[in-house]
């Protein structure tokens, strides 16, 4: 039959779908964070303190607690701002500006993943890994740390891939009709940043 009556893709629908997906994803992260608190509050052995575990700063020295993760958090939040700027410029039909800001977002995302890899490598050298921890501490500390940051890292990687895809799409397109796509990608990116803020608070700070 003919399908001229079929609804065109309704951008309002995609936006709602994105929000519903994010709500759903919040529940996944809540599951992990609940596990974190359940394990921590029921811990019978020593639960390591973030000040002691995370002292590593590449290129500078070893004795600045939480400095590296603070830098990581800072750059990730900066990427949120650049993502917003990209969307804003795109809305004002400034394609080049938008692409530049999007490029910065991708770059910062890759930097974040790079920093996280450095941290993981360093921690695994110090004896922290799935099922491993320096003697006397609660092994579930490193278990849940790697599980949550790993799961968040996968989200960041997916976000980078989406951003690269949309970068190419905007670069190639003749007319500017990717605003809703860009906006949805932005929603996802801000969400990933927001989750990191909670992870930073719960796992590193307290």
């Amino acid at each position: 039959m003919n399908d001229i009556h079929l609804n065109k893709i309704n951008h309002q629908n995609w936006k709602l779908m994105m929000w519903l997906f994010l709500i759903s994803d919040i529940f996944t992260f809540c599951g992990f964070i609940n596990v974190f608190f359940a394990l921590r509050l029921n811990s019978k052995t020593i639960w390591p303190n973030g000040d002691i575990v995370f002292t590593y700063v590449p290129l500078i020295g070893y004795n600045i607690p939480l400095a590296f993760v603070t830098i990581m958090t800072f750059i990730l939040i900066m990427s949120s701002i650049s993502m917003y700027a990209s969307t804003y410029e795109y809305k004002k039909s400034k394609k080049i500006n938008s692409l530049i800001w999007l490029f910065f977002t991708i770059l910062i995302g890759i930097m974040f993943i790079f920093c996280q890899s450095l941290e993981w490598i360093h921690l695994s050298n110090k004896g922290y890994w799935f099922g491993k921890i320096p003697i006397g501490h609660n092994v579930n500390y490193s278990n849940i740390f790697f599980a949550i940051t790993g799961f968040h890292g996968i989200h960041v990687l997916i976000g980078i891939m989406i951003n690269i895809f949309i970068f190419i799409k905007i670069y190639l397109e003749k007319r500017m009709h990717s605003y809703n796509f860009l906006n949805n990608a932005g929603l996802y990116w801000h969400f990933v940043d927001l989750i990191w803020v909670f992870i930073f608070t719960f796992i590193y700070l307290i």
């Binding site: 519903l20 759903s24 994803d25 529940f27 996944t28 992260f29 809540c30 599951g31 992990f32 596990v35």
Partner: peptide, 9 residues
Amino acid sequence: LLSFPVLMA
């Protein structure tokens, strides 16, 4: 939507 993600975790 709200309960399956927790099983995923």
